[in-house]
């Protein structure tokens, strides 16, 4: 049902609970990696495959919310599912605000956890895809010449070739050439396409 490369990271100080979660996660064909503490997990490099975290909020040495902050600082955007012995409302609200996918109170229904895991993996997969696409765009943008990089923002901001030529102190024909070359290198099929790409790259002149 899911790609074999997906990973569920389990962080729980209770070894028996860790084992139980491991068994449950493997029973639906997912891969689990177990950690006894948040530090252990943070020592690793951020995962590059779709993944999610299942975390007991009462971790030794670090609270669940502190852990969320650490993740944000390390720029780890892996979705987090919290499980807790006693979920009080304020704590769960804070966790959700800090980007948790789900907040489950022990003992929870297995299906609830598995659903949350699926949801988290989907969103992480989508995120990785978005990030990969962005990386491609950035790579293409990097292949532009300095002059093409100068022309591109002016083109996507809707200026006419004549205006651009005047602004950059060159002929309209040269601008046309740069523009065609940039479109080709960016693999844009139309001006609209190019505008979208510029927006995703966060180029100036694209904010509405």
């Amino acid at each position: 049902m899911t790609d074999r490369e997906d990973i569920v990271f389990v962080i729980d100080d209770d070894a028996s609970m860790r084992e139980a979660l491991n068994s449950l996660i493997r029973s639906v064909g997912l891969r689990a990696e177990l950690f006894g503490s948040a530090k252990e997990f943070l020592r690793q490099s951020p995962p590059s495959v779709p993944s999610c975290l299942v975390v007991d909020i009462r971790l030794p040495g670090m609270s669940g919310l502190e852990f969320q902050r650490h993740l944000a600082e390390a720029d780890v955007r892996t979705p987090v599912i919290f499980i807790t012995a006693h979920g009080d409302v304020p704590m769960s609200v804070r966790a959700m605000k800090a980007g948790a996918v789900e907040f489950l109170t022990k003992p929870f229904r297995d299906q609830d956890l598995l659903d949350a895991i699926q949801l988290a993996l989907e969103s992480d997969r989508a995120r990785l895809q978005r990030e990969a696409q962005l990386a491609v765009l950035r790579h293409r943008f990097d292949s532009l010449t300095p002059r093409e990089r100068e022309v591109l923002p002016l083109v996507v901001s809707g200026r006419l070739n004549k205006e651009i030529a005047k602004k950059l102190g060159t002929s309209e024909i040269t601008i046309k050439m740069h523009r065609a070359s940039a479109m080709r290198k960016m693999q844009a099929e139309s001006l609209v396409d190019l505008v979208k790409m510029a927006a995703r790259l966060g180029l100036p002149g694209t904010e509405s």
């Binding site: 209770d14 609970m17 068994s23 449950l24 029973s27 639906v28 012995a85 006693h86 022990k106 229904r109």
Partner: peptide, 22 residues
């Protein structure tokens, strides 16, 4: 007590569910 009992109870439930799935 609630917390002390809850901890093993959660493990029982999770193990039980996993076993059913296996």
């Amino acid at each position: 007590i609630a917390h002390e009992i809850n901890q093993p109870l959660a493990a029982v439930v999770t193990n039980g569910s996993a076993s059913l799935r296996w």
